[in-house]
Write a protein that binds this DNA or RNA. Structure first.
Lengths: 226, 226
DNA sequence: CGACCATTTGATATGGATCAAGCGATGTGG
DNA sequence: CCACATCGCTTGATCCATATCAAATGGTCG
């Protein structure tokens, strides 16, 4: 009966909670120690827009997308979160985007209030909370910049970003669909697909399957970034 | 000789530093008290991309734009700052955008380190620094959302946003040029101009001059927001 | 008044959207 | 184990919103 709510020390230690080659900070440690493991199936909602932002999440395995819907059904994906990434942190009391699991996903969940309370005593934690938010800000600003570029520049930028975030050098294993990519980049699925095909024709990338991309020519790709 | 660097207590008290109807917080008080007044002429650079982010700014009068340039000259404006707004706060040590005065502008300048030091002792200040960053994040996310909309939706959204930020009800006095608006919205100057004209033809707005806009029909405008 | 710069207006071009099949992988029931 | 439905992706044909190119108009300031 109590098994589910027991302190998840073993899981927290074992799980691939940290990004490759990343030194954990006080806050991340706190999340790892205090965070409760939780699982979500593919396409399950983790939280909804306008829900109280009482928790903070760290991806253990799988992948997460955050998004907003416009009244007419257009969807803008705000970000993708991969293992080691923290999401759901907002200064306000409600989430301004929804979050869903892209594939079956494990996360650590921690009460926001607990972390804020800790931050009141520990400046290191306080500054980490700030840093996480600032990193999100940076990401959002880069996203804005991406959205004024051409379709090819957006797709190439996306592939380079993903390559830098997953281990595996030039091999990328995309957890998300073409539709997800399109909604992240402000393009249609057809344009994303065509652009990928064109990059393959150009020998800039290889597409062993639709979800696997190999970067063949980084310098050529770099030049296509705008 | 020392006049320029004297504590600017009188100016800080007198100036229209706070936004209309806004209750100042501990941090904002700190900026107002400790901030040194400084003036910039129209189009003068306040700081450049990749410069050390040693200072934080609060607009007293005038207006500021932050922006990034792409190698081929495309410019993306990140945000506009009006009297009472704080800008230049980054968690990292360098600015990721440049900042320029749109018109002749007065700001209060404060050393980042001083504020961070204060935050280490005062949780209220620490939490305010976080809140300011989180507000920027919110703004950037809204900006991303705007950039997937149609030209008309972007322009209308921009006008409504500006109306909510300046006093004057339905009368907006735009400090920025059409080019600035275009570079903020990811459109061309011609498209912005045409869209404005179309809104005027539709009786949604009035354009007494190119820099003055009167919102004539808010509910109609609201419907055009997407 | 005349020069200059910002803005508007007009004509045309085009990148990406939309509409519409086709195709390959995965899974399901007979 | 195979027919066939389903789903995600690609490919093709056409359209359209916005960019681009070009010129006219309107302030502003010496």
């Amino acid at each position: 009966m109590l098994m589910q709510s027991a302190v998840p020390s073993r899981i927290a230690k074992d799980a691939a909670v940290t990004k490759p080659g990343h030194v954990p900070t006080a806050t991340e440690d706190a999340i790892d120690m205090m965070g409760a493991p939780m699982s979500f199936r593919r396409n399950a909602e983790i939280y909804g827009e306008d829900e109280p932002a009482d928790y903070l999440y760290k991806v253990v395995s799988g992948a997460v997308r955050t998004y907003k819907l416009l009244s007419d059904g257009r969807r803008q994906i705000g970000a993708f979160y991969l293992p080691g990434d923290v999401f759901g942190l907002e200064s306000g009391s409600v989430h301004s985007l929804s979050a869903e699991a892209i594939s079956d996903t494990k996360v650590l969940v921690i009460k926001r209030r607990a972390l804020v309370a800790l931050a009141a005593r520990d400046n290191g934690v306080a500054s980490q909370l700030w840093t996480i938010t600032a990193r999100e800000l940076q990401r959002a600003q880069d996203h804005v910049l991406a959205l004024i570029k051409t379709a090819e520049e957006r797709v190439v930028g996306f592939l380079l970003e993903m390559a830098s975030r997953v281990r595996g050098g030039n091999q990328i294993d995309l957890p998300m669909s073409r539709q997800d990519i399109a909604d992240y980049l402000g393009l249609t699925i057809e344009t994303v697909s065509r652009t990928m095909t064109h990059l393959e024709d150009t020998a800039a990338i290889e597409l062993p399957s639709s979800r696997k991309v190999v970067l063949r020519n980084r310098s050529a790709l770099g030049r296509l970034t705008g």
